[in-house]
């Protein structure tokens, strides 16, 4: 069979017309999505929207003021938590064509195996950054205040201590030695995420197994891996 014959045969497969209701359904769902997106229309129009806007602006102003007036290091002095170090990280997302863009910068620390966020910032998005920093600060305070009342699981803490003592490995896990990142030696672990992307994590045993680098890759049908997302530490801030 030549190419022309194949083309003629393939053209025999027709597609049925779309039902007349498709456009109406899409239109109705568009209207419904607007209703969800714009609560102000449902709850009293502009007045509610204005109140919400003023509240957001006030919160943002307060957050920005706190953020500017109180440096991050000083913020931690208020905390009940003992924070021996913080890590600044950069999150990058990669498009299908290989181009990349920085999504977010974070400052965080680790506490009993959990990463606690101190602040986030988003390049070229001052409003989102301001709002996030307010939310992060509130979240951090809530976390800190709740600490004396939280009942930590003894088993969990023991396992965590053993994990750090064993150089960031748990029984059965296969790890390999990774490159030094910002002067800290690392161990590497690979695992699969839902929907099959592959994740690789570089943990620093000397920083309580903090993940200094994390990448997510998707396997292509030709067997190669395409980078989807990365997170890398750009600075480690040790505290006295």
């Amino acid at each position: 069979m030549n190419d022309q014959e194949l083309k003629d045969i393939l053209d025999a497969w027709d597609v049925p017309p779309v039902t007349g209701s498709l456009r109406q359904n899409v239109r109705a769902r568009f209207a419904a999505s607007l209703e969800r997106e714009l609560p102000s229309k449902r709850w009293g129009g502009w007045f509610t929207a204005k109140i919400a806007a003023v509240t957001v602006v006030c919160l943002l102003a307060l957050g920005l003021f706190v953020n500017e007036a109180v440096p991050q290091v000083a913020k931690m002095d208020f905390l009940l938590l003992n924070v021996p170090f913080t890590v600044d990280s950069e999150f990058t997302r990669y498009a299908d064509d290989g181009s990349s863009s920085v999504e977010m910068y974070t400052t965080s620390f680790t506490h009993n195996g959990y990463e606690v966020l101190l602040s986030r910032s988003f390049p070229d998005q001052p409003f989102r950054t301001g709002l996030s920093q307010v939310m992060d600060w509130i979240g951090l305070l809530m976390f800190d205040i709740s600490l004396p009342f939280s009942k930590g699981s003894g088993k969990q803490e023991t396992a965590r201590t053993a994990f750090i003592k064993n150089g960031c490995t748990a029984s059965g896990q296969i790890v390999s030695t990774g490159e030094a990142i910002l002067g800290y030696r690392t161990v590497v672990i690979h695992y699969n995420l839902p929907d099959d992307p592959r994740a690789t994590l570089w943990m620093a045993p000397d920083l309580a197994c903090f993940g200094l680098k994390f990448i997510i890759e998707k396997k292509q049908s030709d067997g190669t891996f395409h980078l989807l997302q990365t997170r890398r530490a750009i600075r480690v801030n040790l505290r006295q």
Partner: peptide, 22 residues
Amino acid sequence: YRLTGSRADAEDIVQECFLQLL
């Protein structure tokens, strides 16, 4: 339609596709 072989699925997918843009 040609990917799924189903008219109903194809219509659902098209709807979902436009709504995802929003």
